[in-house]
Design a protein around this nucleic acid. Structure first.
Length: 259
DNA sequence: AGTACCACCTGACGGC
DNA sequence: TGCCGTCAGGTGGTAC
């Protein structure tokens, strides 16, 4: 479930579990997810994780001696630390074991995740054409970006090259809160509506991170708790409908998002 | 530039 | 029970 709030939750989890521990061994259980040389991944042996960072849906662990381990979770990726014993999942793809005990596993059922070693986050962001992080982008830049495009607002928000971090679930959530039809052309949004989208984006992301993306803890009226057959809007009881946008299922309220 | 597909992957679920 | 299509919160490529 890895969009920005999930990845931020993983980042905090990693910061609390694996910092400053010495990596005693690295086990690559699935070569498919390793997207830099196996050598570079193996060379983490003997190093420590110094700090954590995140940009959009990418999580970074700084390595002692330079460089970063970059994690991307695809559709089903996650990380799990065990102080003792083994990680039980049958989809463990990569395992770091620490001196003095403990293991960190990268788990990914669908194998769409990617793990690599990089030199600098800045270069990585540039090379991968990532836009500014959705949590740090400023209102002015956000509005300029929206106004420069004609595509459907949802597709635009999903585009990692424009803003990094938003995926299918949270784009729907944000537009549901701002009362914007997901199919509306970005260039047709006026300043006040862009402001509503911007504010919804920040609020939704912060709420999700605060609740650690646990659906049970999220507010009842959130759309992500109402995806599915015959659901009704948490604001006005309107009918929630599903349509395809950019090939992805999109849910919206046929009452307050009709514009 | 915007959109519509296809591909990469695995698994769950509903219909017959 | 088995098979089949569809769907799933990601990204990258192609072609019109």
């Amino acid at each position: 479930m890895p969009e920005l709030p999930d990845v931020e939750t993983y980042r905090r989890y990693l910061a609390s579990k694996v910092l400053h521990k010495k990596v005693a061994d690295v086990e690559i259980k699935d070569k498919l997810i390793v997207r830099s040389s196996e050598m570079s991944i193996r060379s983490i042996r003997g190093k420590r994780f110094k700090s954590t960072a995140r940009h959009g849906k990418h999580c970074f662990l700084e390595l002692s001696g330079g460089g970063f381990l970059a994690l991307h979770f695809g559709m089903t990726g996650s990380v799990e630390y065990r102080g003792s014993g083994k990680v039980s999942s049958e989809h463990v793809r990569l395992v770091f074991s620490f001196s003095g005990g403990g293991v960190l596993a990268f788990i990914d059922m669908r194998r769409l995740g990617r793990v690599r070693v990089i030199k600098s986050i800045q270069d990585f962001v540039t090379k991968n054409h990532l836009g500014p992080d959705a949590l740090s982008v400023g209102r002015k830049d956000f509005e300029r970006m929206i106004r420069s495009r004609k595509e459907m607002i949802k597709s635009l928000l999903m585009d990692q090259g424009q803003i990094a971090g938003l995926g299918n679930i949270y784009c729907d959530e944000i537009l549901y809160h701002s009362g914007t039809n997901p199919r509306k052309s970005a260039s047709k949004l006026d300043s006040s509506e862009i402001g509503r989208i911007y504010n919804s984006m920040k609020k939704v992301l912060k709420t999700a991170i605060d609740k650690r993306t646990d659906p049970e803890r999220m507010p009842r009226n959130y759309l992500l708790r109402r995806r599915g057959k015959g659901a009704s809007c948490g604001f006005d009881g309107g009918k929630i409908e599903r349509v395809k946008i950019g090939g992805r299922s999109s849910y919206y309220c046929t009452t307050h998002q009709l514009n």
